[in-house]
Amino acid sequence: MKRKKKSVLMDLIMLPLCAIVAYPFIYVLMGAFKSRGEFAVNPYGWPQSATIQNFLKAFEGVSFIRILWNNIFITALSVLAVTIISAMAAYAVVYNNCKVNRGIRIYLLLGFFIPFQATLLPLYQLYSSMGLMDKLYGIILLHAGSISLPFFMFYGSIQGLPREYAEAAWMDGCSVPGTFFRIIFPLTRPVMITQVIFTFFATWNDYLAPSLFLTSRDKGVLILEVTRSVSRNSVDWGRSFAVVTITLILPFIFFLAAQKYLISGMAAGGVKG
């Protein structure tokens, strides 16, 4: 295929649009380095006297590090649990393809039809009565139960693997779990990466579930901290934006590292996390 000529015209049209789209991020980032006084007179421009006071203020007191840790802990364990649980289920359904398991496959896929909003009130009640309120693992369990999309993705991937791999492993005396962990699970890597990215964004950015089920401050996550500070009467935007900046770092790194998987995964599955 011949290369088309590059035109500068499109750059000239698109770059201003990109600048507009990027501005809210730049605004937040600049705000994070402005003192309270400066933010009041110069909220939108370049910081005249940049200060890291806001970040230091945010980290003041032990609780902030604790909250940051809660965020990382919930996300890491949720991603791990979702990945292993859904891959295991997909493996069992593909390799023990009996009538019951075909039914279970459809059952697990029903989750696509169920919005969190419809289950929210009964969950609130269950959490209160089961003592899961204000527990980090309560949120992790909730994520680990919402496995329809990852299960669907792993099912497609394992279904597409040649049966010979697993059969050879059995011949050599590999057990059912052994075959999964040594042969099948590693072979699902491309799908696994896409799935990990989707689950990461879904859990790291989740607001509704933590806002309902994590009620005390030191059990909270970063975004709840932002909500708290913003709903006060006089908002210290510099400090709030410093916290927001910290919540943006990991998604940004993930985004840069995983761009091509994000797009190819979306195109293949026709889904977004």
């Binding site: 859904s86 493996y91 697990l108 419809a118 139960g145 919402s146 496995i147 057990s175």
Partner: peptide, 24 residues
């Protein structure tokens, strides 16, 4: 062993998605 592999997914999905939906 295969059915044990399915267990965590089915239990968690049932408790945290299906049961609340039915309750709703």
């Amino acid at each position: 062993q295969y059915q044990l592999f399915l267990l965590p997914a089915v239990v968690l999905f049932t408790v945290f998605v299906m049961v609340p939906l039915v309750m709703c």
